[in-house]
Nucleic acid binder design. Structure first.
Length: 172
DNA sequence: CGAACGGCCAAAC
DNA sequence: GTTTGGCCGTTCG
């Protein structure tokens, strides 16, 4: 995470008995979020975004999510198209890197993976709902443990963390 | 400019 | 089960 400038809010949350931080970038609207295990950035704190950070913490811990203002900034056309396709995957379902690539008419699932890694708004654009085509977990920028945790709670993974085949969503 | 690198995948042993 | 060759947007030199 190279750029620290412009950080406006953060909120601690607990996952797996370890303290994590949810960090929010943005001015009027949130333009970027990061989930962090390590220390807080030493930048100014904007209390107006604490509400947003708190909502995301609630979502992480209880699954409650309300409408929030957000916007995409500094995102390439390709990344936007990936995110737009991703947004169709409903709660409780998963899709694959290859399925997104096919929906976009390209033949490079890996390019899709690269774009998801750059997702500026994790959770809002649910990149945790993308797994490999053989129902393996795939990766996650904030750590695969958190990815599994989210998918189990959404019902797309069984309690043992394996992806449920019948939760593959194909209609993109 | 070029080269290398992925959160991958389908086909083939 | 494992290996292989291709994929393509981005990043870095």
């Amino acid at each position: 995470m190279a750029r620290e400038a412009g950080v406006h809010g953060w909120c601690p949350y607990t996952f797996d008995r370890t303290k994590h931080y949810l960090i929010v970038w943005g001015d009027e609207c949130v333009s970027r979020i990061a989930l962090r295990e390590d220390s807080l950035p030493q930048t100014g704190h904007d209390p107006s975004l604490d509400t947003y950070a708190f909502m995301l913490k609630e979502w992480l811990t209880t699954g409650e999510m309300h409408e929030v203002p957000f916007m995409l900034k500094d995102v390439s056309a390709f990344d936007r198209s990936v995110l737009a396709t991703l947004a169709k995957v409903p709660h409780g379902y998963v899709t694959s890197y290859g399925a997104i690539a096919r929906a976009l008419g390209i033949r490079s699932p890996r390019a899709v993976g690269q774009a998801l890694k750059r997702n500026p708004l994790p959770l809002i654009y649910p990149c945790h709902r993308v797994v490999s085509s053989d129902c393996g977990l795939g990766g996650f920028s904030a750590g695969t443990d958190l990815k599994t945790h989210l998918l189990v709670r959404e019902g797309a993974c069984a309690d043992d963390g394996t992806v449920r085949r019948d939760r593959m969503f194909h209609d993109l």
